[in-house]
Design a protein around this nucleic acid. Structure first.
Lengths: 366, 366
DNA sequence: TTGTAAGCGTTATCAC
DNA sequence: GTGATAACGCTTACAA
């Protein structure tokens, strides 16, 4: 944004934003064809003129201030409708020093867990008259930083994000006093909505032990990601308590990551006869690997995965899962954020939700 | 927005936006505690003062204009960094009469088909320096209208949407000259990116016929939705050409819709021995119903569904699907939109992409 | 190369 | 109850 730039023969060379600026430049340079009406967008001034009142009155009338003659209100409304007037939100927000927009920065738009969160946030936000800008950090601290910059520039009312872990990014928001709520992953000192997945992982592992599996493995997410670490920790809690051997792999929170981890685990001298999987995207890869290894779910190998995917009941036998309250996470986060927007003073608040083990056929030894 | 309002003892009663206004009012009313620094956000003026230059120079320096003394640029950058200055995007856009924001209004954030589109849009937009506001119309013309209003107010640079069918909504954008691109579903006279799903449905149906199934049914989406109609039409094209009996049901684009439709079809005097399903969410419900009816996929009943869901290969036998190029739809739509933003004059352009039949086990009579 | 100043479209603070 | 008018923070002619 404010990085170094280079000028070459009138063309700016550099980062992405330059492309945009070139485009804008191009646009404004191009004169409209003579026959084409220079279409002016109606402003509050036009409405005022047409209604024969001042802009102040138009503003008051359209914003439902009590102190306006009903007759004028009607006239103003009519004028506005005739001109197809839509108030300019930019000007309004600039003046009000407020924007009815929340930024939601999540790690993966295509992960149902996060889209469910998005829905929760959106529903609450919409009820408050706010819009939600969804941004995809793609688990990249750099993209996260960029989106936080955008949020800062656009002066959004608040930010909800699943932190990548680079706390310096979030610092920027704190410095500016922009309210922030973290979801799914913790934030050093701030509002957050978390799920006790360590406990859930422990319970799931205990469930596998109780079901009679002997060598229980774990396929978890990237070592840097907090949820991945937590789920692994919960697994280890249970494994140690039961005095069993530990057997685990990290991988990307993707099908491919799950598949590779599984292939590796199955190649161990003493392979696992049960697996705890940290996320449903990975589960897809894991199941592929198991299928290729001709292992029968439940019978040959027990499986529990985090996230209650829609398809979990379609496979045979159906998948035992750890269901996370994703929608509720979004709701709570939005509520926390609005509370913070309303009053910045109270100390940080952490909401911890519980995950729920849903037992199905994939953990029945048969 | 400009609807009727009621005043009751100082409280505004009415739609959602009023809640927001109340909140804002509340907020500004609340005086900050005496001890709390009224934290001022640094403006371009502060930077100018600190760097000992004019605001114009700051603006030029930070925007990489060539005509600035390198020494000053350094000084300005330093000052900006020290003050934690972030340009106010609202003011900038108000002045430039441009916003680097696209609105993407889709029918369902939780549908992988649409999130894949979102990714395509996002990637192209980001490369151009634009942000994307994702909005969820939930298949509701009313929500669509509301989001279009927001887009209009915020003066977004353009809109990409999967139209609910209420053309009057899109009219508003046209009136204002806001560039629009429709995806997935057609728009009377405008840019659009479509998939030839009628053809795809025909091919899929022919595939079922060729595979030896006799009574082929179709589970499609709501009668009002264009894609649902198209897919049904393609099915009928093939069925008629083969002189087979038609057998179909409409339902919501949801698992529950698919399930109910299937239950009904199976209750027919002469139930189908194969099904074409219009969307993967519905497919989940269909498969549940088939499983409850103890029908074996492929062998007892052939199944093809639209959308190549990630789990399609996990079930047994794996699902034959019609894969839609969702990501590419998003890319193309964004490109069309940028072209339109750059030059509004050319006539509307329609891009039609092909869907691809992916044959798997669920259509093998076995 | 730099500074001055005029807006961009609203809303809010004054007077009337 | 209504109307001037001054901000809001930025960009960009136009001067210097």
């Amino acid at each position: 944004m404010s990085g170094p730039r280079t000028e070459v023969a009138g063309y700016r060379v550099g980062g992405r934003l330059d492309q945009r600026e070139d485009r804008l430049a191009t646009r404004s340079r191009r004169a409209p064809p003579a026959w084409q009406q220079e279409e002016k967008v109606a402003t509050i001034n036009d409405v005022a003129r047409r209604a024969g009142v001042s802009t102040a009155t138009v503003s008051r009338a359209l914003n439902g201030k009590s102190t306006v003659d009903p007759a004028l209100v009607t006239r103003v409304r009519a004028a506005a409708k005739e001109l197809g007037y839509h108030p300019n939100g930019l000007a309004r927000n600039l003046r009000r020093q407020e924007t009815a927009v929340l930024a939601l920065i999540i790690a993966d738009v295509e992960n149902p867990f996060f889209t469910a969160i998005a829905r929760g946030v959106e529903d609450v936000a919409q009820a408050e008259g706010y819009s939600v800008v969804l941004c995809n950090s793609d688990e990249s601290a750099e993209k996260e930083r960029r989106y936080i910059d955008v949020a800062l520039q656009e002066r959004v009312a608040g930010v909800i994000l699943s932190p990548t872990g680079a706390t310096s990014n979030v610092e920027r928001l704190h410095e500016r006093g922009t309210p922030v709520v973290a979801v799914d992953r913790p934030l050093p000192a701030g509002d957050q909505v978390l799920v006790d997945t360590r406990l859930a992982a422990r319970e799931a592992t205990n469930h596998l032990i109780a079901a009679g599996y002997r060598r229980i493995g774990c396929v978890t997410g990237p070592a840097g990601v907090r949820t991945a670490n937590d789920r692994l920790a919960g697994y280890r809690d249970a494994i140690r308590a039961a005095n069993r051997p530990e057997l685990f792999r990290h991988g990307q929170y993707w099908a491919a990551g799950g598949k590779q981890a599984t292939v590796e685990l199955l190649a161990e001298p003493e392979p696992p006869d049960a697996l705890l999987i940290a996320n449903s995207a990975m589960a897809i890869g894991v199941l592929e690997a198991l299928s290729e290894a001709k292992l029968r779910l439940g019978r040959d190998i027990g499986v529990v995965t985090f996230d209650d995917a829609a398809w979990a009941t379609l496979i045979d036998p159906p998948l035992t899962v750890v269901a996370q309250p994703a929608y509720e996470i979004g709701e709570q986060a939005a509520k926390l954020l609005f509370a913070r927007i309303g009053d910045p003073s109270p100390p940080p608040h952490t909401v911890t939700l519980a995950a729920r083990l849903v037992t199905r056929g994939s953990t029945l030894r048969g």
